[in-house]
Each structure stands twice: as structure tokens, then as C-alpha cells.
Design a protein around this nucleic acid. Structure first.
Length: 906
RNA sequence: AGGCCCGUAGCUCAGUUGGUUAGAGCGCUACCUUGACACGGUAGAGGUCUGGGGUUCGAGUCCCCACGGGCCUACCA
């Protein structure tokens, strides 16, 4: 039966089938009762509003590689998927949608609005989970979680109440970050700072009872309407005499005190500062110290309010413009200078955040931070790359209280009830029937919801069933690892650690791997709004998901950002195609071999593969011994690399093994054997080839799940075996290790390469078989080349390789290459280009001269000899001896050529 | 303002505890459409590791300074 195999790999034909298969068969469902060491990992929950972007692609590729690798090594493996409810983003999306239909969400009322959001969630939310299935992530979909589900909402309430009872959650009136677009308060982390070019307006405030002015400098003139003081430094000689007087606030005609406070920087601006306690964090503190009034001059959507006098109703920026004009008209604007400052923007809406006085719920962080700091310090959580530890420590040490409440409808409603009779607050797990103090049933629940990140912080244990001591919790918590981008170290990682330790008494994960960001070709952070983002779904379609995964993995060196390009993706796609074609080679040739009665089952059955490599004539052929030795090396290297999150090394290692060793040398070497008339030799070659190929597929599987699954199914497998993903990652078998074979084949490769180089130099046509000679003083090498003469002849396209032991080649015909241990010559009618050859020789001799000189200098140095380790000295000496021989040979050769050309010239 | 990271071949990046002629992919040059693969094969050119100083027998690797680039934290109006 002849097999039909496409000439090039077409991932589009293959991927959807396996993606569906993995989900339908529930292949990655974890079994908490199964044996084996545990590997558990929870997804960093993506937004319900989100779709797969390139950052997820990297994150999920790394997670899935490690998950598949552990699973294949016999771990009881759980990869738990899910999403967070993304309070602000989701509400924004649905509000906008309703607005498009002409519906004001506020008019719908809270309950109806929530119903609409759930409907939206069911219909169009969670696109990313579908995409994760498409790209074949090996999640346990039966354990999928959502932060706003009833199950996880209970956990959130439990945690809130406990923290409240412990005195860690409190309600207070503070100056907070307010987003006038999202109409909610934000935590410090949700404010992004951006340097912007602005102005510094110098405004003259008349001093009451004098004809003088006190000039203040401000970047936000609109806030002056809420000024309740002007401050100067107590030791500022310029202003000492005005302290205690009053200034007349322009435009408002309000008398405000001139006070002295040490917070004033005498060097900045005029040294006099307007104080607006209701609109500036610094001024808020100053206001408290001096018991100043707090006048809020804005509405929640950043328009000026009734306190703003004539400016009421204007947008804050229009008001700024108008105020500056009016001041100018009244001659109170002294001057305007350019000023750059970092302004706070809302992460979601990009609106300028307005500091505002507001009553909110807060969480005390210091008591939570201390154990979280200590756990990382003590190494209970390994952080990779470890230079991120400093950032973590720094943030933890300077941590500030967390603003928990949000003025939204979509989220976990704060479990606090206010008594309408006596204002008493009841915080409870369940809806309280009456006020605890006065017994009134007239209660009203707090209207606000909790920050989404509050529930995300509980994710590693809330998803496993805490506070119940469930089977999953017992088995899979603490999780093994968290993989996420370093940009959300504080959002997630830090909070998960704090909450995890506080509530479970254990760290939530034993290690954190913080990966890089994917950047554009020009090195910028990708951004959807700038249109600089790459769409991984489209790229997966174009190049194949396996290629994308391999590409990302091969660039994912810890701590380094990734700049993705078409070139790199194409290179990974080429690799996938190479693997496909190696398989194609196997099966096309197998068709021929099967015609002589061989059966695939006998050559490649699972029990046949298990015993490879096989011997022919009592001995394992050199090239097979070599390949399995390389396989063992590669397995060890990959295991070590993956254990240390060195994805790029593992990827490059398997690339080198498959392409360089397996395709370029091994397949080429055994080609004739596969169709050999010698039945035993052919059978052994096939068995060794298939077993090696199968092992290579398993090595590749964590990186390229689709392609390897497809090809694995074309090999005979054990009855009931459903997927390569449930097979074993190869072990570095002791019997595969073979230092002699590694050395021998390396030597043969060196001889072959030397011969090929000569052919290229002489411009021998590719298929023209040339004669060649080989000479060595090394007996072992001579034997080795003689034994493998046929292979060398084939690799170097020779009619014959003559062994001319201990003979020195002259320059008469052909070209020569020499190493310290051997010389080769290709005999060819065309003569060498003596000029070019001499240039090459001179260059090489010069290189050697430098190398030799530096070694001689070092070895001649007594201090070096007495201090350097023995191994280094021995190594240098050995190399030096080799290089001297080599240099001598090259010099002689140069002399021959030189003499020859002179002779020809005369 | 404080902290962190980076500067190695034309490009993008590796380079484990300082130790023998600094590696890879892409690109480039030459040759090759050979029965797995041109998404391929073979051979090759190309860096002295941003600059300066220091420690050391020995520095791409450790220390200091400068220059260049990036990031994070921070209430300078």
C-alpha cells in the first residue's frame, strides 16, 4: 500500500483535527488519585473581554511546553484554565454596546444591567478560551474556572469578611485616583504614568491689606478654584513676613490663609504653593496638618461643579483654558513656562486620572507583605530570572494600602450592609437579616464592587476548592509554578503570594517564571491601539501553530525581550517542514522496502522500538551508536534546560539534533542500508531509524504538539495508546551513551568536510566522482577511516579514497587539506588556483601564529603555571602541540606552492 | 529622584561558576533543481565583544567611570 504524503507540511490541514481530538477525548483531564509526583499550574487568568494576543501566545506556549514535558515524564499533571471577570473592561464594553442601541445602562438598573453582562459573557465573552483550544493547549477543561462564578464568589466573600474581622480591611475617606471616564476609583497600580509636555502657570494672588502679590506656580490652574491656602517654606526669607496674612484667591474672591509648611520646595517655581486639599495628594496631607477646608470643585465626570463659581459646568480642560484667559485679562498671570511632568492615566480608558476625595474600602498591606517578602527572601518561592527579586522586594517594602472598592456594577459586590437607622456597618458572609446593634431590618448593601485583582489574588487556591479541604486542594496546592510576564509582577504575583500565605499558610506556588515581552521590529511594546500588535491567530494560520510555538520558544531566553519577525517565523516553519519531510522520506522508502515483504509492525512496533539500537553482525553499527549517543546527550541537555526555564536552549538543542544530526548525517549515512540486499543489515537499519525517529518526535512534542501527534499516529502504537502527549519523554538511556562513537563520527565528519571543502575549492561538479587520498600517522584514525571508507566516499562523492599511510603530499596535482592528525588530497584534472590557495594558507597560518604565540607566552609564565588549574595547563599544552603540527604542515604546503608558482613563472 | 536591565557578526540574539582559535538563526557569497525536503543541499566570508580605567597569571564574563538605548517605582506643585 503506497502512502500519500504531501510534499510540504500543511499545518492548516492537520491542526484543527488534533485540537478537536484533544478536547473531545478529554486527554488532559487530571486525576487527583493518580500516582506520581505532582505538577500543577494555574493559568494567569486572562480577561473575559480579551482575545489571544501575542503576549498570551508566548505565555501559554511556555506553560504548555512545561506542562506537556512534565506529563510525558510521568507527573500527575494539572493545567487549570479559566478567566477573570475584568470589572472595568467588561462594564465598558457592555455599556458601549448598550449606548449604541440608544440605551443608558443606568436607566436599566443594576439587576437588569448585570443580566445583560452575563448574557454578553455567554455569547461573546471568553473568546480566548476557544482560541486556547484551537492552539492545542493541554488544559483540563473540566476544571475551567471564572472569578465571578458563584463558587469563586463565595471564596471572595469569605476572604473579605476574614480580612475585615482581622482589621485588615477598613473604610476611610481619602484622596484617591479617580477615572472620570470609567467613573470609578482606581488603585495605584491601575494608574500609568506618562511624561507629557505641559506648562507651569505663574499666578499672582493679591495679599489682603497690601498692594503686593504672592505668586504661585501651578500645572493645573483649574484646581485653584478649590484652593484653601497658599503655603511657603517656614525658613524662606522671601516670604517670612507674609506668613499669617491672607491672600485673595483670584476669580473666586475668597480669602485664604498664607501658611508655612516644610513640604514646600523653595527651589521649585516661585517657592509659594497653592494648596488644594481636595485635588492633590500633597495638598490633602498639608490640609490635614493645617485643618484646612477641602473644597471639591469637580463632578465625577470631571466637569466643574457648583463650587467652581462661574466655571461650573465646564469640562476641566475647558475650564483651565478659560481660567488662564481670565487671569491674563485681569493681569494676574505673571508668566507661563514650559514644564514636563509625569501625569497619571487610567490604564483602561487612557483618561487623565483626577485625584479626588472619596470614601472607599481599603486593605492594609504591610501585615500581608511582610510574610510574602520573607517567603521569597528565604527561597520558598524561586523567582526566575532572580534579578526580578529586587523589584519585588522594593515594591513590597514600600507597599501602600490597596483601594479595593470600585464604583461598578460588574463584579463582587462588597459584603457590607449599612443600617439606615444608626449607620452601623455589618460585614457578613450571608445577607444579614438585621442590624447587629439596633436590630433594625432596614439595611442597605454597599453599592460598590471589589477590584477584579482582589479575586485574581486568590486564584491559585480559590480554583482548587479552598476553603474546603477538597481532594484537588490537597493534591494540587501549592501549585508548582506560575508563569507570567514581568509587567504584572505586582498585579498578580505579589498579591497571590500575599493572599496565598495569609489564607492557606503556604506559598501559592513554588516558583515564578517571569517571561519577557514580545516587541515589534522597532523594539517597542506592541500595542493594539497603535496598530503595532501582531495577531497570533493570523500568524498561526500562516505559519502553523507549531512553528509559532517553536519560534517563540527558541527566542525565549530568560530576561530578554523578544522581537518577532517574519524571518524568524519562516525559519521555524522551515523546521516543521524539515520534520515533515524526514517522515516523508521514511514512509516513501518504506513503501519500497515493504514490497520485499517487510512489515511496518516488525520494523517500528512499540516493543521493537523499545530495544533499539539493534546490532548487525553482532555489533551496533557506528553511526547508530553515534546517533543514540547524541540522542542521550540531547535528552539530558533538554531536561536540564527546561528545568531551568531555558526554553531557547532546549529548542535549539532539539533543532540541532533533528536537523544537524538526524537529517544531515544519520539519514544520509543509512540511506544505502535501508535498501540493502543484505536482509539483516536492512532490517536493523530500519529498526534503528524508526526508533530514533519516534524518540525525536517525543522530544519535539512539547514544542510542536500538532505535527508530532500527526506523525506519531502513523507509526504503530500500543493497543489503546491514544496520543503522543500521553507517551513518555525519552530518557537518556545508559546503554545509549557512547563517548567513542561520538568521537569517531566527529572525526569522520571532519575528514568528510575537509574533502568537500577541497571539492568546492577546485569547483568539481557536484555529481562528479573524484579520486582522493588520505594520510595519517594516527593508527586508530587510519583504521577508522578504512572501516568507514564507503561512507566517506559517498559523503564526499569520491570514486575512491586511497589510504596512503604516512605519505606526504606534494603540490603537483589536486588540492590538500591538513589538520594536525591527517591530510587529504583530491585528485582532479583542474589545477588549484595557487594564488587563492596561498591567500587562504597565509590567513590560516597567521591565525595559528597568534594562537601559538599567546599560548607560548602563557605557558612560559611561571605565575601562570603555578596558579592555573592543571586541566587548563594540560589543555593548552595539548592544543599548542596540535597547532604547531598544523602550522608546520601549512607552512610546508605554502612553500611547495610558492616554489611551484615560481618554477612555473620561469 | 530611586532602582533594574541592555549595548557581542549586516540584522535578531546565545555565551552557565572569569580559563584552550567567541557561537546560533536570518541575511550575504559561490556552487548544486541529486528520487524526503529549494520551506532544500554543500562550502565559505564576516565580530576582538560601545569607549576608557581597574582587579587578575588570565576578562565578552568581576569592579569603577563615561556614552548610548530600554523598563519599573515615586505626591515635586
Amino acid at each position: 500500500m503506497a502512502r500519500e504524503i504531501a510534499k510540504a507540511y500543511e499545518p492548516q490541514q492537520i491542526e484543527p483535527r488534533w485540537a478537536e481530538f484533544w478536547v473531545k477525548e478529554a486527554l488532559f483531564r487530571a486525576d487527583a488519585s493518580a500516582p506520581g509526583p505532582v505538577f500543577s499550574i494555574v493559568i494567569p487568568p486572562p480577561n473575559v473581554t480579551g482575545s489571544l494576543h501575542i503576549g498570551h501566545m508566548l505565555d501559554h506556549t511556555e506553560i504548555d511546553i512545561l506542562t506537556r514535558w512534565h506529563r510525558m515524564r510521568g507527573y500527575n499533571t494539572l493545567y487549570l484554565p479559566g478567566m477573570d471577570h475584568a470589572g472595568i473592561s467588561t462594564q465598558r464594553v457592555v455599556v458601549r454596546q448598550l449606548a449604541e442601541q440608544g440605551i443608558d445602562y443606568r436607566k436599566l438598573g443594576r439587576e437588569e444591567f448585570e443580566r445583560r453582562v452575563w448574557k454578553w459573557k455567554e455569547e461573546s465573552g471568553g473568546m480566548i478560551l476557544g482560541q486556547m483550544r484551537q492552539i492545542g493547549e493541554s488544559c483540563d477543561w473540566s476544571r475551567e474556572k471564572f472569578t465571578l462564578s458563584p463558587e469563586l464568589s463565595r471564596v471572595v466573600r469569605e476572604v473579605f469578611v476574614r480580612l475585615y474581622e482581622e482589621g485588615l480591611i477598613y473604610r476611610a475617606t481619602r484622596l484617591v485616583n479617580w477615572c472620570p471616564d470609567c467613573l470609578t476609583v482606581l488603585s495605584d497600580l491601575e494608574v500609568a504614568h506618562e511624561e507629557r509636555q505641559g506648562h507651569l502657570w505663574h499666578i499672582k494672588y493679591p495679599i489682603v491689606g497690601t498692594k503686593e502679590f504672592l505668586t504661585v506656580a501651578t500645572t493645573r490652574p483649574e484646581t485653584m478654584l478649590g484652593d484653601t491656602a497658599v503655603a511657603v517654606h517656614p525658613e524662606d526669607e522671601r516670604y517670612k513676613r507674609v506668613v499669617g496674612r491672607k491672600a485673595l484667591l483670584p476669580l473666586m474672591n475668597r480669602e485664604i490663609p498664607i501658611i508655612a509648611d516644610e513640604m514646600v520646595d523653595r527651589e521649585f517655581g516661585t517657592g509659594a504653593v497653592k494648596i488644594t486639599p481636595a485635588h492633590d495628594p500633597n495638598d490633602f496631607e498639608t490640609g490635614k496638618r493645617h485643618k484646612l477646608a477641602e473644597i471639591d470643585v469637580m463632578t465625577d465626570d470631571a466637569h466643574m461643579n457648583a463650587n467652581a463659581g462661574a466655571y461650573a459646568g465646564l469640562d476641566r480642560f475647558q475650564a483651565r483654558k478659560k481660567i488662564v484667559e481670565d487671569l491674563k485679562a485681569q493681569g494676574l498671570l505673571e508668566k507661563t513656562t514650559g514644564h514636563t511632568s509625569a501625569i497619571g492615566l487610567c490604564e483602561r480608558s487612557k483618561t487623565v486620572v483626577e485625584p479626588r476625595i472619596s470614601t472607599q474600602w481599603f486593605c492594609k498591606m504591610k501585615p500581608l507583605a511582610e510574610p510574602a517578602l520573607a517567603a521569597v527572601e528565604r527561597g520558598e518561592i524561586r523567582m526566575v530570572p532572580d534579578n526580578r527579586r529586587e523589584e519585588y522586594f522594593n515594591w513590597m517594602r514600600n507597599i501602600r494600602d490597596w483601594t479595593l472598592s470600585r464604583q461598578l456594577w460588574w463584579g463582587h459586590r462588597i459584603p457590607a450592609w449599612y443600617c439606615k437607622e444608626n449607620k452601623h456597618v455589618t460585614v457578613a458572609r450571608e445577607i444579614p437579616a438585621k442590624c447587629a446593634t439596633c436590630g433594625s431590618a432596614n439595611l442597605e448593601q454597599d453599592a460598590d464592587v471589589l477590584d477584579t485583582w482582589f479575586s485574581s489574588g486568590l486564584w491559585p487556591f480559590s480554583t482548587l476548592g479552598w476553603p474546603e479541604n477538597t481532594v484537588d486542594y490537597k493534591k494540587y496546592y501549592p501549585t508548582s509554578l506560575l508563569i507570567t510576564g514581568y509587567d504584572i509582577l505586582f498585579f498578580w504575583v505579589a498579591r497571590m503570594i500575599m493572599m496565598g500565605i495569609h489564607f492557606t499558610g503556604q506559598v501559592p506556588f513554588r516558583a515564578v517564571y517571569l517571561h519577557a515581552l514580545v516587541r515589534t521590529g522597532s523594539g517597542e511594546k506592541m500595542s493594539k491601539s497603535k496598530g503595532t500588535g501582531l495577531d497570533p491567530v493570523a500568524l498561526n494560520q500562516q505559519y502553523g501553530t507549531d512553528a509559532m510555538r517553536f519560534c517563540l520558544a527558541s527566542m525565549a531566553a530568560p530576561g530578554t525581550d523578544i522581537i518577532l519577525s517574519d524571518d524568524k517565523l519562516a525559519s521555524a516553519r522551515n523546521f516543521a517542514n524539515k520534520i515533515w519531510n524526514a517522515a516523508r522520506f521514511l514512509f516513501v522508502n518504506l513503501d519500497k522496502f515493504e514490497q520485499s515483504g517487510a512489515k511496518l509492525e516488525d520494523l517500528a512496533g512499540p516493543e521493537v522500538r523499545a530495544k533499539a539500537p539493534y546490532a548487525a553482525g553482532g555489533e551496533i553499527p557506528l553511526v547508530d551508536a553515534w546517533l543514540y549517543a547524541r540522542l542521550a546527550e540531547t535528552v539530558e541537555m533538554m531536561n536540564d534546560a527546561l528545568a531551568n526555564y531555558r526554553f531557547h536552549e532546549a529548542a535549539q538543542g532539539v533543532y540541532q539534533f533533528f536537523w544537524g544530526d538526524f537529517c544531515d548525517w544519520y539519514i544520509e549515512w543509512v540511506k544505502p542500508e535501508l535498501q540493502s540486499a543484505d536482509r539483516e543489515r536492512a532490517t536493523v537499519a530500519w529498526k534503528n531509524l524508526f526508533a530514533a525517529f519516534d524518540a525525536a518526535l517525543r522530544l519535539l512534542h512539547p514544542f510542536m504538539p500538532f505535527l508530532t501527534e500527526e506523525l506519531w499516529h502513523q507509526l504503530p502504537q500500543q493497543a489503546g495508546a491514544r496520543s503522543i502527549a500521553l507517551g513518555r519523554f525519552p530518557e537518556a538511556e545508559l546503554r545509549w551513551k557512547n563517548a567513542d562513537a561520538l568521537r569517531d563520527v566527529a572525526q569522520i565528519q571532519e575528514v568528510v568536510t575537509a574533502l568537500r571543502a577541497i571539492r568546492a575549492e577546485l569547483r568539481v561538479e557536484a555529481r562528479k566522482k573524484a579520486g582522493a587520498e588520505f594520510s595519517t600517522t594516527d593508527r586508530g584514525l587510519g583504521d577508522l577511516i578504512r572501516t568507514n571508507k564507503e561512507a566517506v566516499e559517498r559523503f564526499a562523492v569520491l570514486s575512491e579514497l586511497r589510504m596512503v599511510l604516512n605519505e606526504r603530499f606534494d603540490a603537483k596535482s589536486g588540492a590538500v587539506r591538513s589538520t594536525a592528525t591527517f591530510d587529504v588530497r583530491v585528485v582532479y584534472s583542474e589545477t588549484v588556483d595557487a594564488g587563492a590557495e596561498m591567500t587562504r594558507l597565509k590567513k590560516e597560518i597567521e591565525g595559528l601564529r597568534k594562537a601559538i604565540a599567546s599560548k607560548e607566552r602563557q605557558l612560559g609564565d611561571e605565575t601562570f603555571r603555578s596558579r592555573a588549574p592543571e586541566m587548563i595547563i594540560k589543555g593548552l599544552e595539548a592544543t599548542l602541540a596540535q597547532q604547531r603540527i598544523e602550522q608546520e604542515k601549512l607552512r610546508r604546503r605554502l612553500g611547495d606552492l610558492d616554489g611551484g608558482s615560481q618554477a612555473a613563472g620561469t
